[in-house]
Design a protein around this nucleic acid. Structure first.
Length: 694
DNA sequence: TTTTGAAGTCTCTCC
DNA sequence: GACTTCAAAA
């Protein structure tokens, strides 16, 4: 729950004692020191890629502690759980255990903690369930259907679209109509109906005690802006607020920061406008560009000396980003000497590209670079499919970041639905999901069951009151007894959640085996889920943490990482942010892939894709290779083969900083068949025989 | 009337 | 390869 210490404090670990004479400001360059030792008042740190941003922030925390600021009065907001942990761990190494009580986490996790604590006084029941994005979309679908927009009289936006627009509206304050005109002109005519769906959705959430991601931020902002008594208490919790990756915050988050700084102005934000890559979720570069105006008297410090990459890699990156529109102009430089120009690798087709990357990885590995010091980056999760097959075939261990998440897998969500219904009997989304799993229960029966439960005020016994049609009776029976069994269990006991999942699986595993052709990997996922559950003190803590701090994938779960810690990383460019590797490969640098084709019409989106490419390139320390296949097998475009162009971001100027390499096609050629010779084996005849042609 | 199976339609990024 | 839409079976 909110007190789960793992989320907010640095992990306990051995700490090297600090010399009494050292200062947290030691070992920094001038600009970094200016930022770290800045006194009170707003501070904006413009930090280019690889310029020691994290280091500076960590040292600033150290300096604040040295000045006597109490750790628990410092709030460190980061973008991902990983960076929160990393920073707190580093702070602890720097200044010792004093830093252990610094509060750190993502905006959403922090909002969650505050809402559990203060929400009740603002009408939010403290036992709310957090919906992830797809849950929220499902709930939106209920509203859509209930209002009669499900019937296909006219093209009405899909639940994903409805949710996307809703979310953007909440995060950006842009009116619904404007969003529709901008992004979905064909739905402008439905504006009034869409507003009705949103009203229903909002009410539904309240009745069902559900909270979506956007609500977490929205309620936080509302507490600060509209409930003066609570606002003072909440803002009064902290004397210093530090925000990482500020370029990826949105208007709502900026409002929250403003509210949190009502009693003081000790706000430090760090960001790089050139790395803003989250506008799709409402992030706006304006936050960072307008910061000095919003907070008059801001001190601005720019970090431009790069400690990560070789100069040739920076040259390529600098030219690439110089094509972008509005930004804080800065040019990265390094004192590192030498280094090869990045490679621009032309490959005939995808297999050639794959082959090249794998061969080169092995080559570098031979030269002594561990696999974990190498990464392959791409625009979208599915771009690595061919590579994953090849790596598996050649026994190269890899870890994939981004893309399909463990928790988004249908079978994991299924099991969680049972737990969520126990936790919050009004959780309509989970009830629906769970009911549809049961044999003999379909959409109509499920709806009916939920109507009955609503009539009985969603009490625990309500489901038992429902009289199912004959076909569904065994399923109903089984469910009722399972839920009774689970509810009679003790809650706060060690390992209770794991045991609950085990009980659910007595029923669910059979359903799963029925549903999927290859059930084993999915059953293994559920084993993993039970293991993760073992780490949480209660069901509520488990469910909340899962929504806010999802494990990246099976490898994140503590398995494998010890047994095989030399693992290659495959990652989307988004998930790679904030990380660095000795050698980086960017694949699919092709127009339509990177940038993605759907961004092609829009200058702003193209700019964002360009920044994303910049993020990818600047992950590399010593070796950088950008590969593009010339011929693409792509059924989406109608043709089996299309001849593609190298990404527009690699224009003449950028290419001039790179060296060209031509990937050799895979050498293992099949022998050329002799068309005139008779077939050695007539497969068709064999096949006919196999089925005993009549 | 309800459920289930099959064909058809796309495919991003994350808290 | 996952999810929605459409038609057939119980």
């Amino acid at each position: 729950m909110s007190d789960d210490p793992r989320l907010y404090h640095a992990r306990d670990r051995d700490v090297a004692p600090r010399s009494d004479h050292a200062s947290a400001a030691d070992g920094l360059n001038d600009a970094q020191r200016r930022a770290a030792t800045h006194g009170d008042g707003p501070l904006l740190i413009i930090a280019g890629a690889g310029t020691g941003k994290t280091r500076t922030l960590v040292h600033r925390v150290g300096v604040l502690l040295e000045r006597g600021v109490r750790a628990e009065r410092i709030l460190l907001l980061t973008f991902t759980r990983r960076s929160a942990q990393e920073m707190l761990a580093r702070a602890e190494r720097l200044v010792g255990s004093a830093s252990r009580h610094v509060h750190g986490g993502t905006f959403h996790a922090t909002a969650h903690r505050l809402l559990r604590r203060f929400g009740e006084q603002a009408g939010i029941r403290p036992d709310f369930t957090i919906m992830d994005q797809s849950d929220a979309e499902d709930l939106m679908q209920f509203s859509r259907a209930r209002l009669g927009f499900g019937d296909k009289k006219k093209r009405f936006p899909k639940k994903e679209t409805l949710h996307h627009v809703y979310s953007r509206h909440v995060n950006t304050d842009i009116p619904i109509g404007a969003l529709l005109r901008e992004e979905y002109p064909r739905f402008v005519e439905f504006e009034d109906d869409i507003a009705k769906v949103y009203a229903d959705y909002t009410q539904r959430k309240q009745e069902r005690n559900l909270v979506d991601y956007d609500d977490l931020l929205l309620f936080w902002a509302m507490l600060l802006e509209q409930v003066p008594a609570l606002a003072d208490r909440i803002a009064g919790l902290y004397d210093h607020i530090l925000v990482d990756e500020y370029q990826d915050t949105n208007l709502l988050q900026a409002r929250i920061l403003k509210g949190m700084c009502r009693t003081h102005r000790n706000l430090t934000v760090v960001g790089d406008d050139a790395q803003s890559i989250y506008s799709f979720r409402g992030a706006t570069i304006r936050n960072i560009l307008d910061f000095p105006r919003e907070f008059p008297g801001t001190t601005v410090v720019a970090l431009e000396e790069n400690y990560r990459s070789t100069q040739p890699i920076l040259d390529t990156s600098n030219v690439l980003i110089s094509r972008a529109g509005e930004r804080y102009t800065k040019s990265l430089y390094t004192k590192r000497v030498g280094g090869d120009a990045p490679w621009l690798v032309a490959a005939q087709d995808e297999p050639t590209q794959t082959r090249f990357v794998v061969d080169r990885i092995l080559e570098l590995h031979e030269e002594g670079i561990p696999l974990r010091e190498m990464a392959v980056l791409f625009r979208a999760g599915y771009h690595s499919a061919d590579l994953e097959i090849e790596l598996t075939a050649r026994n190269i261990p890899f870890d994939k970041w981004g893309g399909l998440k463990f928790l988004e897998a249908a079978h994991v969500k299924d099991v969680l639905a049972f737990l969520r219904v126990l936790e919050n009997p009004r959780d309509e989304v989970s009830w629906y999901r769970l009911l549809l799993l049961m044999p003999g229960i379909g959409e109509v029966t499920a709806r009916h069951a939920m109507d009955v439960m609503a009539e009985h005020a969603w009490t625990h016994a309500a489901f038992g009151q429902f009289v199912p049609p004959p076909r569904a009776r065994p399923a109903h029976q089984a469910l009722v007894s399972l839920l009774d069994q689970l509810r009679s269990g003790t809650l706060d006991e060690e390992g209770a959640v794991t045991r609950e999942i085990a009980r659910v699986r007595v029923l669910y595993d059979d359903i799963l085996r029925e549903k999927y052709d290859r059930p084993d990997p999915r059953l293994a996922d559920l084993d993993q889920l039970q293991i993760i559950a073992g780490g949480y003190p209660s069901r509520a803590a488990f469910l909340s943490a899962l929504a806010l701090e999802p494990p990246q994938g099976t490898q994140d779960l503590g398995f494998g990482s010890d047994a095989e810690d030399d693992i290659l990383v495959l990652s989307t460019a988004h998930s790679a942010k904030g990380r660095e590797w000795d050698a980086v490969f960017v694949i699919w640098a092709v127009d339509g892939y990177f940038p993605l084709s759907r961004a092609l019409g829009d200058d702003d989106q193209i700019d964002e894709e360009r920044r994303l490419m910049y993020v990818a390139l600047t992950r590399a320390r010593n070796h950088l290779a950008v590969a593009y296949p010339l011929n693409v097998y792509d059924t989406r475009r109608g043709a089996d083969y299309s001849f593609d162009q190298v990404s527009r971001f690699l224009d003449r100027g950028v290419r001039a900083t790179m060296q060209r390499v031509v990937a050799e096609p895979p050498t293992a050629q099949l022998p050329t068949p002799d068309a005139t010779a008779p077939p050695v084996v007539d497969l068709r005849a064999l096949l006919r025989g196999k089925f005993g042609s009549a």
